[in-house]
Design a protein around this nucleic acid. Structure first.
Lengths: 275, 275
DNA sequence: TCGTCCAACTTGTTCAAACGAGTTGAACGA
DNA sequence: TCGTTCAACTCGTTTGAACAAGTTGGACGA
């Protein structure tokens, strides 16, 4: 199927790209042109060795570039595969607090998920710990003060989606003890608090991106080359008192986030698929 | 300085981590504990070879893990260095449209930059092109319609910071021709339009993250292991007519984004340094 | 027919060697 | 003193070999 590719080594003048990068470029081109569509299997290392007349190490160096770029995934015994993502959109400006909260909460994300025929599930863990310096600053409490930490990992079908850790100051937990219940608050913590007169009206959101730590990569089941989105939301009462601080780590390859700012209510945006 | 590390190979039962990952873990630990502070030089490959009794390829595989995680940067002839970032924060909810716009625009970002004693600069390029499918959808114009593309690369001091491409629909350019001027609009395009009665009051923002393409990596001068933030903002008139669409690509290692949502005006957040 | 087993694939890990190319600082000469 | 040169360091690229370990499908036997 492939003819032997003439190796570009003996140029005069400008030095050619190193062989491993030529390999990466060639395969990347095959991907971007659609010759290798998402989900398809790459030629095996053996085939690429023959095609480029390179050593195995060189071929692997080239493929490693594409792994780092998040374009392909290796699987021992099965070969390399072109990444395919199904992106879910999260409307952060309408989002109350928790991903996957109940539809009655008016949350848009769970709807997004279930409307596509997916099932969402979650693992919950609740602890009482001490506030870190960062959290204490945001929650405007002394460092080391007791807080309730509600830790949650969310799944779409079987795929880990995000990790979320919410810290509530102790004074709030005292008044509303179900926050410390190690079980799911059925109607959602935001609704629970709202029903008891504690309303979050303001948010401060902070976004950043980075590569996952090994722990995060394990929990989200992502390989190298996939960045994460880190979302830190602090919620405030009408009196500008911090009520909670939520740190959410989202898989970058599966997530898109939107904000609608201004007067328009429901945005009439068609879903434009991009890249 | 370092004693020979006993290699963990012959465990019974659970197979040990491969050597290259042991090396990565050891060095990562040195970084996270501060034994190797940001900006410091790593031991050379030679030293690590001796310390772990591994082949050079194995040591390089280990270091490659850390490069992919964005923790270190290699420099030919000079050794490896622990990454050090100076993060700049961009307040997207107060942000008018362009990064680095003039202080009179009330933009917070340029202030952030100059207040720290940095200088911001930019490269501008203006073209007339045809709207892509995506852009046309957002701008609510026919696909292939003429648009003005204002392309800009921003720098902090000498460091590339972000790449920004704004598309204006032709009907707007006709009415406000300076949008097509291949020179900097001194007072900022947002202000320019506002002064002429065209006010952007609503925004639709879309955020995602991914690894850069080779082109983006070159333009932003980022190495492997550094993700980018992609920000797509569509601006609307009070009549909900799309006025422009801006795609901004930000270096993930240097950027943090905030949104303040709700009634509170200026958020009294102290700058809490995290991570 | 239906499991089991195994051969033949796949990628994962590691070694050893060689040469190329960028950087640095010390020795040297003008 | 100052510039040049160069040795000795750094990482960059490539080869070839070997064995480990996961996957798959077909042959084979019950």
């Amino acid at each position: 199927m492939y003819e032997q590719v003439a190796r570009v080594r003996d140029d005069v003048g400008m030095s050619p790209a190193p062989l491993y990068r030529q390999i990466a470029d060639a395969v990347r081109m095959d991907i971007s042109t659609g010759r290798l569509p998402p989900g398809s299997k790459l030629p095996s290392e053996r085939e690429l060795i023959d095609r480029f007349g390179a050593a195995r190490g060189t071929v692997r160096a080239g493929l490693n570039v594409l792994i780092t770029e998040g374009l392909i995934t290796p699987a021992q015994g099965r070969g390399y595969q072109v990444q395919q993502h199904e992106v879910f959109t999260l409307d952060a400006s309408r989002h109350e607090n928790l991903l996957f909260s109940r539809p009655e909460d008016g949350d848009s994300f769970n709807n997004d998920v279930t409307q596509v025929g997916r099932t969402s599930s979650q693992e919950l863990r609740v602890e009482v710990t001490e506030a870190s310096a960062e959290a204490a600053t945001r929650l405007e409490i002394p460092i080391g003060d007791r807080v309730v930490l509600r830790y949650c990992r969310y799944f779409v079908d079987e795929t880990p989606w995000s990790i979320q850790a919410t810290q509530y100051p102790w004074w709030l937990v005292n008044a509303h003890p179900r926050l410390a219940d190690p079980v799911d608050v059925r109607e959602g913590t935001t609704r629970y608090l709202a029903d008891r007169g504690v309303k979050q009206v303001d948010f401060h959101d902070e976004w950043s991106t980075r590569m996952p730590t090994p722990d995060e990569a394990r929990e989200l089941q992502i390989g190298p080359g996939v960045p994460i989105l880190v979302w830190v939301r602090t919620g405030y009462s009408p009196a500008s008192q911090p009520l909670r601080r939520t740190v959410t780590v989202l898989r970058g390859d599966l997530s898109r986030v939107t904000y609608d700012i201004g007067d328009r209510k429901s945005s009439p945006h068609r879903e434009a698929e991009g890249q």
